[in-house]
């Protein structure tokens, strides 16, 4: 008898068939040990983290199942009065969205006139961006408009994006950029 894959002589289903007088062998007698032990993987989750679907603005509830610091499943939260556990196809694909191999995990940098991406350490990249913000801001600062009204701003820097971000993130973006004098701050609401 072949070994492995949940088979051993002692539980040869034919024996069980004989023992249980099961002529047809269509039911449990033919079950393998794996089948007998089968259970939903979510039952083994270390924790279940409440979340919200990141796609459209309906705001369906999600539950994220985590085991060994890895995500094992994301599905609808039945407690939500909005979605009652349902998800649309996009929401149902959230697991693939957040754990997919499409996710880039390094900072990429393209130098001026460069033909390829390069990787840069995260800290260095943030330093570089900060340096460029300062340079551009200083170079393009406008104290007043053409008529002499104070404007206290830079038109040399712009921002786009926000509708996929958290409120807290939008808040800090608006706060920092306004303090820097950036006014061209926009998001999907107008796109």
């Amino acid at each position: 008898m072949p070994s492995g894959d949940g088979f051993s002589l002692s539980n040869w289903p034919l024996f069980r068939q004989l023992k249980q007088r099961d002529l047809f062998g269509l039911e449990q007698t033919a079950a393998s040990p794996r089948t007998e032990a089968l259970t939903a993987r979510t039952a083994s989750a270390d924790r279940i983290v409440p979340s919200i679907c990141p796609y459209c603005a309906v705001g369906c509830g999600q539950l994220v199942y985590v085991k060994n610091e890895k995500i094992i499943d994301i599905e609808g939260d039945p407690a939500s009065p909005i979605s009652r556990g349902c998800l649309c196809p996009k929401g149902a694909a959230t697991f693939q969205l957040v754990t997919g191999s499409h996710r880039v995990q390094h900072v990429l940098y393209r130098r001026p006139h460069g033909k390829e991406w390069e990787t840069v350490p995260l800290e260095q990249a943030v330093d570089m961006v900060a340096e460029r913000v300062k340079r551009t801001r200083d170079e393009t600062w406008e104290g007043t408009d053409e008529e002499g009204h104070p404007v206290r701003r830079t038109m040399g820097i712009a921002h786009l994006g926000g509708a996929t971000l958290d409120n807290e993130e939008n808040y800090l973006i608006k706060k920092l950029f306004t303090a820097l004098g950036i006014v061209q701050i926009e998001n999907q609401a107008r796109v």
């Binding site: 919200i52 679907c53 990141p54 796609y55 459209c56 603005a57 309906v58 705001g59 921002h159 994006g161 926000g162 509708a163 996929t164 971000l165 958290d166 409120n167 939008n170 808040y171 973006i173 608006k174 006014v183 061209q184 701050i185 926009e186 998001n187 999907q188 609401a189 107008r190």
Partner: peptide, 18 residues
């Protein structure tokens, strides 16, 4: 209004808008 992004309402309330 059936808005299209998870927090497009939020990004209007706490606006990343000029």
């Amino acid at each position: 209004a059936l808005r299209g992004h998870a927090s497009i309402q939020g990004s209007t309330d706490i606006p990343t808008l000029y």
